[in-house]
Amino acid sequence: MAGMTDSPRSQIRFPGAELEIDLDAIERNYQRFVRTLGAAECGATVKADAYGLGVAHVAPVLWDAGCRTFFVATPAEGIELRDILPEATIYIFNGAPRDWEYHFIESRLIPVLNSLSDISAWATFARAMGATPAPAALHFDSGMNRLGLSAAEVETLVAEPHRAPFDIPCVMSHLACADKPDEDMTARQRDRFAAAAEAFIEARCDAGLGDDRPRLSLANSAGILIDESYHFDLARPGIGLYGGNPFTDRPSPVDNVIRLRGRILQIREVSPPDTVGYGATHEVTGPGRIATVDVGYGDGYLRCFGEGNGWAVINGHRVPVAGRVSMDSHALDITALPLDDCGVGTMVDLLGGPVPLDDVVKTTGLSGYELLTLLGHRYNRVYKKT
């Protein structure tokens, strides 16, 4: 009987929407960054479940490709990644919550400290650890005003380097406008970061706090591709690994990674004065056909894909979304398609493949980051690897 399986019921794979993730493409994108960086190390940012694509599948591919340094946002993400990659170097962007520092030592995670108070708390913890190493990275804000030590705090730290007596393997900052390389702010951030980091390193050396020079890290995906003056010692690409365009003003330089396809659940004939969907926002103007597809905003296909914005591809034909997107489905106007071109069960391209991410960014107003990290967990996920 179709669908019979010995697998647990929770693992039965029913027909439905499918998210294909090309792990070979992720590896190719990583290797492109490696080649561009030359002597600098290429790490990888795998926060938010590897930008929604599944860190348990993505991280081992990056490790096999030669990546040894990984960046995530939260301690929980770091612990999950440690179970996947026992030997990796793992940085936690959001730092170490007070009274939870020991978990960082236990799981060999390196917090990124973002303020003088962070540094003070970690220094107290490091002293209590005695001979046990308690490394931590520092984040110097260079103009983004999100996380990181302010310029005034950096000046204080340069004047009083003993505030940070622990091992510091990395000093980093984050670019705010690298997606538009011609913005003056990008170069200003680079120069501010370089000056602040060098002043701190010199002060630390003069204070006798160790001969090991911290590695400097600034470049994200876009920063790597702008020019080598942004590379420093360690880069941390993110969106570009996963097929998202690092730039907003030029064609994507990376390979597509995902292909999202929905399944047609039903096709119906419509005619005036029929309407389609919640709010009756799509008014039928003539005899036509509507296909209902099994992907909705509960799957990350948001309402902004609705009437006038979203479109899909069926057997090479582009068709528009009709009306509002619902939680579990949306409608496509397939009136222009040949009658025998699709039916119940036909798979429909919604994102990636013949529906380029850059085109969807333009029509929906979402960023590539949002499109990827919003991808839901109800899809049948298919990981391609040769």
Rank of each mutant, 00 (worst) to 15 (best):
Asp6Phe: 04
Trp63Gly: 04
Glu269Val: 12
Ala123Ser: 15
His162Met: 13
Lys384Thr: 09
Gly244Met: 01
Leu116Asn: 06
Phe104Ile: 04
Pro273Gly: 02
Gly300Gln: 06
Asp64Trp: 08
Leu85Phe: 10
Asp6Ala: 05
Thr363Ile: 12
Ile258Thr: 04
Arg263Met: 15
Met4Tyr: 09
Ser117Gln: 11
Pro251Trp: 03
Ala88Glu: 01
Pro251Tyr: 03
Ala312Thr: 06
Tyr30Thr: 03
Gly16Ser: 08
Gly78Pro: 09
Val382Tyr: 05
Ile334Asp: 00
Ile79Ala: 06
Asn245Glu: 07
Gly223Ala: 07
Arg381Gly: 03
Gly240Trp: 07
Thr36Ser: 11
Pro246His: 06
Val270Cys: 10
Arg98Lys: 07
Thr45Ala: 15
His139Asn: 05
Pro15Arg: 10
Ala195Gln: 15
Pro169Ser: 03
Asp184Pro: 15
Tyr242Lys: 00
Arg127Leu: 09
Ala76Phe: 06
Val254Asp: 02
Asn145Cys: 08
Pro356Leu: 10
Pro97Lys: 12
Leu225Ile: 06
Val355Leu: 10
Asn29Glu: 13
His330Pro: 10
Leu62Ile: 05
Pro15Glu: 11
Phe93Asn: 01
Gly38Phe: 04
Tyr369Gly: 01
Ile267His: 01
Ala235Gly: 15
Leu218Met: 09
Val34Gly: 00
Gly352Leu: 07
Ala235Tyr: 06
Ala2Gln: 14
Val61Met: 15
Lys362Trp: 03
Ala39Cys: 11
Leu339Phe: 05
Tyr379Glu: 08
Phe140Gly: 02
Leu234Thr: 03
